[in-house]
Design a protein around this nucleic acid. Structure first.
Lengths: 183, 183
DNA sequence: AATTTCATGTAACCAGTTACATGATTCA
DNA sequence: TGAATCATGTAACTGGTTACATGAAATT
């Protein structure tokens, strides 16, 4: 939604894209279908209602572009409240449930930080992310160690996947921290 | 659902768990809250309706356990149709959209293979997964290379995360293949 | 002339979330 | 005796999916 609870992944993605420059629903769809942001629903049945909701909650506003033209479109941009809402969503502290259930949203938040936040905040964000990821890796390893020869012989291997990919995430965070500090 | 379309992630997880041994709704909730399978909704509002649906579509059946006891519970097990449906869901060929949007489901399917499939099929599954993952990594790298200095300065770094974690997944698949071949 | 792209929407459906509700059992 | 655990459910809401629908503009 936006006013009280945190925005859904899709709303956050839309807010972030619109924060970069005014965009139409179609622009957003195109981004979702052609770029690596593509695990969002590019279906009009998701995007146009989401845009309506954001307008109704006062986070974005739409103006008709090229009124005179035969193919007008609606360009959305953030309102002041929308910018604040995005800012809050990006700044929210990283917690464990984010790491487990919404890692892609954490990456999304990072991707949109450049346009809004000063680097210091981004560094703090990455550092807290790194901490949570490392805790999660340890927990997975404990689970792995404590796992009995269960009815699912491949279970431990599947958990190993979690260990390996979260470790890769931790490496990425360190890499990103180095990169940002170099500038 | 089950009869025609493929089961949702949650239904698949429930089918898989029940295939190992008869379980109650509460058992399933406990597994979702305490093990690394925890990115499933452990809320009763998700699980009990899902169990109802699976019963209605004839994939599972429930019997009252400990009738005489004061705290009876309903134990579910697969029907023949349910076992076939699970088998089909596990065997479905890996495609690119699975890799992009439902990687965790691909892992879930692997985790449940041990109890049902012969190893040869599991190896074939992993090999096709590896192929798709490698294709996806190449695509991400192309995107990265073709990326302009955009309005989102951290965008390329975020994509780099995708490259690193999918590479980790590829390493895991190779690891799993070696492990399975050793037996 | 036909196809693809630009551009926006609606309607029915379904599944998951949140919150509420109940009650026995076991443990501290 | 009170808290935690075992055990199962319902109701309202919300948001996403699928499918349908329309039509102009640009490209082949």
């Amino acid at each position: 939604m936006g006013s009280r609870s945190q925005p859904s992944s899709l709303s956050l993605a839309i807010l972030g894209l619109i924060s970069q420059e005014p965009r139409s629903g179609y622009d957003i769809r195109r981004i979702f279908t052609t770029t690596p942001m593509g695990h969002f629903s590019a279906s009009p049945g998701a995007i146009y209602p989401a845009l309506d909701r954001l307008v109704r909650t006062g986070l974005i506003k739409g103006v008709i572009d090229r009124k005179q033209a035969l193919r007008p479109r609606r360009l959305y941009s953030l309102t002041d409240r929308g910018r604040r809402a995005l800012d809050e969503a990006l700044l929210r502290p990283v917690d464990r449930s984010d790491v487990i259930w919404r890692l892609d949203e954490l990456l999304l938040r990072f991707a949109f930080m450049g346009s809004i936040h000063e680097q210091k905040r981004t560094l703090a964000y990455l550092e807290s992310l790194l901490g949570e990821v490392e805790i999660h890796v340890s927990w997975l390893q404990e689970q792995l160690a404590a796992m009995p020869e269960s009815t699912a012989p491949y279970g431990p291997l599947a958990i190993k996947h979690g260990v390996m990919t979260y470790r890769a995430t931790a490496r990425w965070v360190r890499h990103a921290l180095r990169q940002l500090r170099e500038d």
